[in-house]
């Protein structure tokens, strides 16, 4: 299958570190390019050679299932040589710093490094020290740009637009890089964004990003076109943010009665992995008429292929 490239358009950034660095044109360019890869991924022969001869290193300092496999598949389908490093077993454990690891890998002349790290800004630091392109696969609680892009692609595919939609992002906003990237992207593309979270999980001055904030989920979901649920990140919680999971589910879990406040054709999204029965009712998660969670995963590969191709050019 031939992939057409719009040669006239160029991306404004060297690296993909965050949505906040991108322009509206950049975002639309990536989303448009992704469309072709959706079809490619559904066809029999899924492999092309636009990245043949290129080396992609996936540097994952945090455990990840979908993002890591998605980036790995994306690279392989584009013909790149992909190496995934699980940094749990690496020299970092022996006391090597991120910069030294970066310099070591840089000496092997990779073309792309995909990095996931528990510290905010790790990808920025890396990008200053290596010669190749750096794609951020999630840094601390700061940004997860490809997740926001795949979410946008999913919304655009289903609703045919993003501008003017009312989108609720609900749950653990404080610890969520997905929320931050989505807020930047969706507000940039003209959506109205409602943030729903208990005060303990609401970041300070988040309203300055141009969003509406709600602690009452029913009010926050009112007339929404999209309900985006986030995972409760218990591993990042160092002290008592919540009384219990069951109380959280009662007030902030997505249940049919709360969803009734959204538009009747509202779609449910979740970046995964899900805590069923904590932030989302398991029937809603699997409701094929409402939930687009599996589609998000599918489109994730396409978006990452587009990013690899665009940033590698």
């Amino acid at each position: 299958m031939a992939i057409k490239t719009n040669k006239a358009i160029k991306i404004s950034q060297k690296h993909l570190l965050g949505i906040q660095d991108l322009s509206v044109n950049d975002i639309n360019y990536i989303l448009d390019e992704s469309e072709a890869f959706i079809k490619l991924n559904q066809s029999k022969n899924k492999k092309i050679d636009v990245l043949r001869g290129k080396t992609q290193i996936n540097l994952f300092f945090e455990p990840s299932t979908r993002t890591q496999s998605s980036f790995e598949l994306a690279g392989k389908r584009l013909g790149a040589d992909v190496m995934s490093m699980n940094m749990g077993n690496s020299a970092i454990k022996k006391g090597e710093t991120l910069i030294d690891t970066a310099m070591t890998l840089n000496a092997m002349h990779p073309d792309i490094i995909v990095i996931r790290h528990q510290d905010s800004g790790a990808c920025n630091l890396l990008s200053q020290k290596v010669n190749c392109v750096v794609l951020n696969a999630g840094d601390g609680r700061r940004e997860h740009p490809t997740q926001a892009l795949l979410d946008a692609l999913t919304i655009r595919n289903r609703k045919k637009k993003i501008q003017g939609l009312r989108i609720a992002i609900c749950g653990d906003i404080l610890h969520s890089r997905v929320a931050r990237s989505n807020i930047y992207l969706l507000t940039m593309l003209g959506a109205e964004v409602n943030i729903v979270a208990p005060s303990n999980l609401m970041p300070k001055e988040i309203e300055k990003f141009g969003v509406n904030t709600f602690t009452d989920m029913k009010k926050g979901l009112k007339d929404c076109d999209i309900v985006m649920m986030l995972r409760l990140q218990n591993e990042r919680m160092t002290s008592s943010y919540l009384s219990s999971n069951r109380e959280y589910y009662e007030y902030y879990g997505l249940t049919p009665d709360k969803l009734d406040h959204a538009k009747s054709d509202a779609l449910i999204m979740h970046p995964g992995p899900m805590n069923r029965g904590i932030e989302i009712d398991t029937r809603l998660a699997d409701d094929i008429n409402k939930s687009v969670i599996k589609e998000q995963v599918e489109l994730g590969v396409a978006v990452r292929m587009a990013c690899l191709k665009i940033f590698c050019e």
Partner: peptide, 14 residues
């Protein structure tokens, strides 16, 4: 604590 901490995704000291 504030907009900068929220933007950079860093935990903050009020």
């Amino acid at each position: 604590s504030g907009i900068i901490a929220t933007k950079l995704g860093l935990s903050s000291i009020p």
